[in-house]
Design a protein around this nucleic acid. Structure first.
Lengths: 239, 239
DNA sequence: CGGAAACTTGAATTACTTCAAGACATGTGG
DNA sequence: CCACATGTCTTGAAGTAATTCAAGTTTCCG
């Protein structure tokens, strides 16, 4: 089974066999985290990072009053907390939205990579930069688009990201979020998410039954969401 | 005059004299950018990055309909587009909000650093990770706080960041933003920003005249904005 | 089959936007 | 130094997008 993280890096630049081997050997073990369980807790000082091999996860922050905001949705191939290698203290939690298969990479192994493999280091760095680019895109869509456009944009993004790691099935992706979780992601109330989804369905843009979300009209969905994929950096360059 | 970037890095970890020297020599030249001028344009493929020595700048995206969202406010010591070293294509513009003095660092110099100075590389990486942490915080405050709380939070953050690079004057900071620009930052309309500011003033939390913003009641401002500075990573650790 | 979780609907409310106009600055050319 | 233009701030009133509350329906799962 190909490592989806390698697959993802290879979208951006080429990797030598040596680099692939180093990455594989940086994994100390693989674990499974159950649905709804935290992969990392806010406030922790982890000594290892988590690479998502299978499943969906979310970064989130919770306010005193219980309101939650999801700041990232992670899919196979995402290094959900690579940043904890240098940030030291987790300023947010990461929760499994489905059962997740996770490769554990000790920070000691990452430090060794940064000491000895400059190009691989740049690719790891790049990975966190793409996370940042996605955050910026979410900021703009949250701040300046309507709830409907924002939702359409999110669906476009997730589709492209899943496609990049070979996790699409034609025009269909797995989207194992509840409407409440989607609300926490988009900064909307559950009720309003429900109405927005009805609109997108009525307009014939998507079908969403159970976990399966199907794009019925990509062009119009892109146009409604004002989606441009530049920020995902899915282009091979020398980095 | 001390380089504010070195000052900023030293909040997070200690730097050797050798590393400081390497950083200084990575600067190819210093330039000045006028108020309202772009420091970097969206869509560009820059071959150098811009380190802000003095002034205020903002990252922004613009939609087809002209609506703008600012995704970051930069102050002295911020590496406004360090990420372009690896992301290659700018997915947003960076504009000078005041006249800016800027140190230019060629990507070739950055590549050399990543090849030869692992610890310094990690600190540069860290710098972009803190940008990401700020983006996440903005996502949560934008998604889940009222306009008033969001605004208070922003002011708290900016105050702490300016303090970290020695750019505060007691309880006063320079805040050279128009209310329209503040709206683009917070995702609010100009009119509503004006009303929110009146509320913060009426409550005796801030004074803001011209460019000078004074914190009148830090404790209550922090409480209104639900501000916790963990995400700014202003703590010295071995990285 | 029963219970919990998720989804859906309607009605009332609220936070924020939009539009429009006026007040206050600030700077420029005559 | 004044007249005028331009940009920024302020205010009011009307409109709208999204929230909240509350109840009902459907789906999922043990």
């Amino acid at each position: 089974m190909p490592n989806p993280f390698v697959l993802k890096l290879e979208q951006c630049d080429s990797l030598s066999d040596d680099e692939k081997r180093v990455l594989e050997s940086a994994i100390s073990r693989v674990r499974v985290v159950e649905n709804d369980e935290d992969i990392v807790h806010e406030g922790e000082h982890p000594s290892e990072s988590n690479l998502l091999l299978d499943g969906f996860a979310a970064r989130y922050k919770i306010f005193s009053n219980g309101r939650r905001q999801i700041t990232a949705i992670h899919v196979a191939g995402d290094f959900v907390d690579l940043h904890s290698f240098l940030l030291k203290t987790m300023d947010h939690g990461v929760v499994a939205l489905t059962p997740c298969r996770i490769a554990i990479v000790p920070h000691a192994a990452l430090e060794k990579i940064t000491d000895e493999y400059p190009h691989l280091t740049r690719l790891l760095w790049l990975n966190t930069l793409i996370d940042g680019a996605i955050h910026r895109e979410w900021l703009t869509t949250m701040g300046r688009l309507s709830a409907t456009a924002h939702t359409a944009h999110f669906i476009c993004e997730l589709f492209m990201r899943l496609k990049a790691v070979g996790r699409t099935d034609g025009d269909t992706i797995q989207l194992p979020l509840t409407q409440a979780e989607l609300g926490d992601t988009l900064g909307l109330s559950t009720v309003h998410v429900n109405r927005v989804l009805q609109e997108l369905r009525k307009e014939g843009l998507i079908r969403w039954q159970g976990d399966a979300l199907t794009i019925l009209d990509w062009e119009r969905l892109v146009s409604v969401g004002e989606f441009t994929p530049t920020y995902l950096n899915l282009q091979r360059e020398h980095r």
